[in-house]
Structures are given as C-alpha cells and as structure tokens.
C-alpha cells in the first residue's frame, strides 16, 4: 500500500498520532472512573498506527509498529493478566483474587490491591488488544507486492 498522495492527509495523520495515543492511555487510565478501559484504550492506541499505515503508507506504519515488536507483545499482554492471576493464586488466594496479593486481611488494604490488580490487568488487556489490532490491520492490509515477497521468502525458507 503506497501512501496516500494527499499531503494534507499525511500531515494531519502524523501530527495526530501522539494525541490519539495519549488519549488511548487516558481511556485506559480512567477506566475505573469513567467508561473505557484496557480494551477500548487498546483499540484506540492501535488505531493510531492504523491511521499512520492508511495515510502514510503500509511501510511507514509498519516501521512505527514492527512485527518484531508486536509479535512478542501479543502474548505478553495475556501473560500479564495470567501472571497477576497466578500471583494471587500463589499468594494463597483464588486465581485472579487480587486482594490476596495484599497479604493482609485489612479490607482497606485489600481494596487498594483490588484496585492495583484492576489497573494491572487493564494494562495487560491493552497490550494484547493494541498489539492484536495493529497486527490484524498490518497483516490484512499488506500490499500485494509485500505479500508476494513474504510468500517467496517463506517458500525459500521451506526449501532450505
């Protein structure tokens, strides 16, 4: 996918990326207080890369979010989530019982840890969701030329 030829669209898309990303993180960070959370934040975060890829060309966007980076991030988010759950389990609680992480029975402390747990898992969700959405986009939108190269490389690797 070549970049769109419109200078204006390219320019605006580039400039808006940090704002979109910050907004995504805002959505993530205020999930407990307002609507949104990791999922929505992740999608919005990914849409910044999507916008880059659409407006400035697939390659431009892919350089901003390379597969090398996204591929390990995909499971990492889930691992964060699972890890928190398992940590709670190891701390003596049930799986995903964030309160158990507090290591104390004081309801006040436990409540805080529930809150921290929530934030933690939201971060995990966001990592996976944004990596997944960006990956989905870049895989689906891969231009024919690049796809042909990928296929060729794959077949050569098979032969080797």
């Amino acid at each position: 996918m070549r970049s769109t030829d419109s200078l204006i669209v390219r320019y605006i898309a580039r400039r808006s990326v940090p704002f979109i990303q910050l907004y995504a993180l805002y959505v993530l960070g205020h999930g407990e207080d307002g609507p949104g959370g990791g999922f929505q934040g992740g999608v919005i975060f990914a849409s910044s890369f999507v916008l880059l890829g659409l407006a400035n060309g697939w390659g431009y966007g892919r350089r901003a979010a390379p597969a090398r980076l996204l591929d390990p991030l995909l499971p990492l988010g889930c691992l964060i989530y699972l890890g928190i759950g398992l940590a709670a389990l190891l701390a003596g609680g049930a799986f995903l019982e964030y309160g158990a992480l507090a290591g104390s029975d004081d309801p006040e402390v436990r409540r805080h840890w529930h809150h921290y747990g929530l934030i933690g898992i939201e971060v995990g969700v966001m990592v996976t969701v944004s990596a997944a959405m960006a990956t989905l986009f870049f895989e689906m939108a891969r231009p024919a030329r690049v796809q042909a190269r990928v296929d060729r490389v794959g077949e050569e690797a098979d032969r080797a």
């Binding site: 898309a13 907004y23 959505v27 205020h30 949104g36 919005i44 999507v50 916008l51 659409l54």
Partner: peptide, 25 residues
C-alpha cells in the same frame, strides 16, 4: 463520560473515512 466517548468518535470517524477513501483510491 459521554464526552470521552464523543472524543474517541471524533478520532475514529476520521480513521474510518480515511480508510474508505484509501481503498477507494
């Protein structure tokens, strides 16, 4: 709360329109 959503709409709608045009072009 609603403004949060409205704000994300503003972003998303733009992305959507650009996407359609991108493929149209």
């Amino acid at each position: 709360f609603f403004l949060d959503i409205a704000l994300s709409y503003a972003l998303i709608n733009f992305v959507g329109t650009i996407a359609v045009l991108r493929y149209y072009e």
